[in-house]
């Protein structure tokens, strides 16, 4: 083959590729197309196997859990009693807070609807450098991009890419994840940054004069516009005050055991933010 023709072919190919890449960055059309075709077909292939795995695992677990059932029942009964007492106290306080907010004319917080979803895979494919999981809910069931994802222990992440029936969730430990938080006891505000798989989370922008303690639970502050206020995210493991900086060096552990995630909850807004703004206007 003529070397000149090969060179022309290569340069033309590279030019075409760069044009396609920048056009897609601007419009997002190709990535939407591959999400609706590729991601959904991956979900269709993985879902039956994942279901079978869950069913088989559940059967074995149920069989094994018969051992020591009586002791576990006793412990759970005591826990229920303690939780009932706590709920009673908290209900009184919540109702009192609601009355005070009404008196002061606070706007009603937006409604959120919960929906369960099953984890069908963790990272998939050669381009999976982000910390993600795949869940069996997509746009058809209202799981849109930036939908908060949590489990009973706390925040898991948010939906990053959504197909028709499958969605990719960006986990809170991914380096591109940011969650605005506040200390549950001392109310020190900060932003949680993911640092990668198996690493501790970093809490940035906590002012030097703020109070934050090791062991304190960090909850979402609602300031990022993605997560509702008050969801538990992480537990503080280290606090360092260094001279010459404006902020403290805070580390935290996620409350969620990410590798063992099997089911999650999606929090869907009853009203989208833009609709809410229109209502206020």
């Amino acid at each position: 083959m003529n070397p000149k023709r090969v060179a022309i072919f290569l340069v033309a190919g590279l030019f075409l590729y760069l044009a396609l890449y920048t056009w897609n960055l601007r419009t997002g059309l190709l990535i939407r197309l591959s999400t609706y075709s590729g991601l959904d077909s991956v979900g269709a292939v993985l879902r039956p196997g994942s279901w079978a795995g869950h069913a088989a695992g559940g059967f074995v677990e149920r069989y094994l859990s018969l051992v020591g059932l009586k002791q576990e029942n006793e412990a759970l009964r005591q826990e229920i009693q303690a939780l009932r007492l706590e709920t009673m106290t908290l209900r009184e306080r919540a109702e009192a807070t609601g009355r005070v907010e009404k008196l002061l004319g606070f706007p009603e917080p937006p409604d959120w609807k919960r929906e369960g979803a099953r984890v069908i895979a963790h990272r998939v494919g050669p381009t999976a450098i982000l910390e993600t999981i795949l869940v069996d809910r997509g746009k058809l069931s209202g799981a849109l991009e930036d939908t908060p994802v949590l489990c009973t222990e706390g925040v898991v992440g948010r939906i990053y890419r959504s197909g028709f029936s499958v969605a990719t969730v960006l986990l809170l430990n991914d380096p591109s994840s940011r969650i605005a938080v506040v200390g549950r006891d001392n109310r020190a505000a900060g932003v949680i940054y993911g640092m990668g798989a198996g690493e501790q989370l970093m809490v940035k922008y906590v002012g030097l004069k703020s109070t934050i303690e090791v062991g304190e639970i960090l909850v979402t502050s609602g300031m990022d516009g993605v997560f509702p206020k008050g969801l538990p995210v992480a537990r503080v493991t280290a606090v360092r005050r260094e001279e010459g900086t404006l902020f403290m060096d805070v580390q935290a552990d996620p409350l969620v055991d990410i590798p063992r995630l099997e089911e999650v909850l999606l929090l869907k807004r009853a009203v989208r933010p833009e609709d809410a703004r229109a209502l206020w206007d």
């Binding site: 396609l20 890449y21 591959s34 590729g38």
Partner: peptide
């Protein structure tokens, strides 16, 4: 295969085209 890799992956569209090329 490009659609599958790009859809399931975490990066913006473009890796799979270069990879298979």
């Amino acid at each position: 295969w490009v659609a599958i890799q790009e859809g399931a992956g975490g990066l913006a569209f473009g890796y799979a085209i270069l990879w298979y090329a």
